[in-house]
Design a binder for these strands. Structure first.
Ligand SMILES: [Mn+2]
Ligand SMILES: [Mn+2]
Ligand SMILES: [Zn+2]
Ligand SMILES: [Zn+2]
Lengths: 139, 139
DNA sequence: ACTACTATTGATAATGATTCTCAATATCAT
DNA sequence: ATGATATTGAGAATCATTATCAATAGTAGT
């Protein structure tokens, strides 16, 4: 049985064509792991698949609820989704070309916990997004 | 001449009733400095002012462009606005009651610069939002 | 204070991303 | 294979925000 099939069964979702195809797209090893719903819809169109945009949104939300994907809101743009590989990381986004890169910084993570504690909060989540010009675009 | 009048003239905006009133609301020293457009619209309504919601959005966007206010996007909610006091800070938001508190952490700020540099970016902006349960809500 | 020139406003329509509805179809345990 | 149930696709609905446009207000110059 295929990988996607297992992933879906594991989270209690029926194995349907839209779900398998969307999961495959998210699993692609490309230069961009971060997809908008429209992105995925267009890839499906190019592949000749006849899957509705509503289904793409629906499936992505189900995947998010199931913990298979993570949803991001960069700047004030549309939602973007990426496969949840279990390793937390934050993002830096090029304001010119839109490239998204990932990073993880222990010191920042620890600091955040300290800040939350000092203010009396139980920290459940955080979003750290850096914006700037990437190495290609800054010239 | 009043404070609001000066602020507006300084950024090249005509002194109109909607602009002055919205600026006054933003300058209020209350427990909440962070307003949505709807928030401000309702305060105006309560004050008996007859200012359209479209005007509120328009004026807030003009204020943002002029550098008078800063717009935030917490979680995936509506835009919230606060007066730009010139002192950069980040935010922690209670996921239960919605309270927003501010903080500034030198170490995090320095780390962000380092991360951007390491990845070859010129950093122009960042959003760091923490989410959790505030001291009142965690019980 | 009056005019004339523009900028601004308020009402309403339009937009765009996302979600909802619902009848038709597909999945899967039996 | 069958039937109970979940899922799908198309299009309508939603909701925050922006655009349109005729009426009105602000302001520089008299
Ligand atoms: Mn990522
Ligand atoms: Mn603030
Ligand atoms: Zn770039
Ligand atoms: Zn709270």
């Amino acid at each position: 049985m295929k990988l996607e099939t297992n992933n879906l069964k594991d989270v209690g979702l029926k194995v349907t064509i839209p779900r398998v195809k969307i999961l495959k797209i998210l699993e692609q090893e490309t230069n961009n792991k971060h997809f908008s719903a429209e992105n995925i819809f267009n890839i499906l169109l190019d592949d000749g698949d006849d899957i509705g945009l509503a289904t793409v949104y629906r499936v992505l939300t189900q995947f998010e609820t199931a913990g298979l994907v993570i949803r991001h809101h960069f700047e004030s743009e549309n939602s973007v989704f990426e496969l949840n590989n279990g390793k937390h990381h934050d993002h830096i986004v090029c304001i010119k070309c839109g490239k998204v890169e990932e990073f993880f910084d222990d010191i920042v993570e620890i600091r955040q916990q300290k800040i939350a504690k000092r203010l009396g909060y139980i920290l459940t989540e955080h979003h750290l997004n850096l914006y700037g010009l990437c190495s290609s675009c800054k010239n």
